[in-house]
């Protein structure tokens, strides 16, 4: 069997009964080389029954077949976490029989089973079928899930930079005109969150006041860890981890023509970082005085 497409978008959903393993599950997904976490979204529903129906509306089996299988979810918390990923090397194959025959990525299926084996509740040492994780079989399901989460553009949410001259994160608008110039590190500002997951405040501060830089300066990753655990899935919807940050600290080579720190101009010759706060913090910690950045033209 050969792959039918070069890459595709998938998602993993952590049901309420698996939220206690949230961090572990996200880290296992992040460690898979064929996946790149694009977005983590927390979602609270007022009607879990309706939500389950929506999630399974693009499934191959009619919902009547799934009703018994999903009954346990009605008792679980109405909170869920959805992790959208870029599947860089899907292994798509036909799966199932007769009416329910469909194409699935074997790698995603294998990972889902691994997570279920590890985190599903057990009875007498045996795994139950009360799944903590659900995943997509195809991109249509991912599109549907994005729309349920309120991203009306569906998969186009991730495809904004398709024709851009540089590799840019999906959450930035398409940048067609930019200037690369040297700027003084002391003129770089960033958005820092304060408060809690549900009620937070965004403040503009110099890079030296960010939890990223302070963790490096104090040689204490707890500050950074606390910050990302507090806001990831909410206002911070990319994937961050201490491990990932430490790896960046070791391997960062900057400037790099593939990835620049992206800034926009604030008042009086100050620049706000739109993408690259981690890199800026590391460079600041390395005592760099000036660095090249991409200045986005308004």
């Amino acid at each position: 069997m050969k792959n039918l497409s070069k890459h595709r978008y998938d998602y993993f959903l952590i049901w309420g009964n698996g939220l206690e393993y949230r961090e572990n599950i996200i880290n296992i997904i992040a460690e898979c080389n064929f996946l790149e976490i694009l977005k983590i979204t927390n979602y609270k529903t007022s009607n879990i029954k309706k939500f389950i129906r929506k999630v399974y509306s693009y499934d191959y089996a009619p919902f009547e077949h799934l009703r018994a299988k999903t009954r346990y979810l009605l008792k679980s918390s109405p909170e869920i976490v959805v992790i959208f990923v870029l599947n860089k090397n899907p292994d798509e194959r036909w799966y199932g029989e007769g009416l329910f025959k469909h194409i699935e990525c074997m790698k995603v299926k294998k990972l889902k089973e691994k997570l279920r084996n590890q985190f599903n509740p057990t009875v007498n040492g045996k795994r139950t079928e009360e799944h903590v994780v659900h995943s997509s079989d195809n991109e249509i399901q991912t599109e549907n899930m994005l729309k349920i989460m309120g991203f009306k553009r569906g998969l186009d949410t991730f495809r904004t930079q398709k024709h851009s001259l540089l590799d840019l994160p999906y959450y930035l608008p398409k940048i067609n005109k930019f200037t690369i110039k040297q700027v003084c590190m002391s003129k770089l500002y960033c958005n820092v969150l304060s408060g809690n997951h549900n009620e937070y405040l965004l403040q503009r501060k110099p890079v030296t006041s960010s939890p990223h830089y302070l963790s490096l300066k104090r040689n204490d990753m707890k500050l950074y860890s606390k910050y990302i655990n507090c806001f990831m899935g909410g206002p911070l919807n990319s994937y961050y981890s201490v491990k990932k940050f430490k790896s960046l600290i070791r391997n960062l080579i900057y400037p790099n023509e593939k990835s620049y720190i992206i800034v926009e101009k604030m008042e009086s010759d100050k620049f706000l970082i739109l993408d690259g706060l981690h890199r800026a913090s590391i460079l600041m910690f390395r005592n760099k005085v000036e660095i090249p950045v991409i200045l986005v033209e308004q």
Binding site: F178, T179, I180, Q182, P255, E290
Partner: peptide, 20 residues
């Protein structure tokens, strides 16, 4: 590739403007 080489000229006061 051009930007990769161009990075080396930024410290000499050059600014690189790119437009699609």
């Amino acid at each position: 590739k051009i930007l990769g080489v161009g990075n080396g000229y930024l410290s000499d006061g050059y600014v690189i403007k790119t437009e699609g």
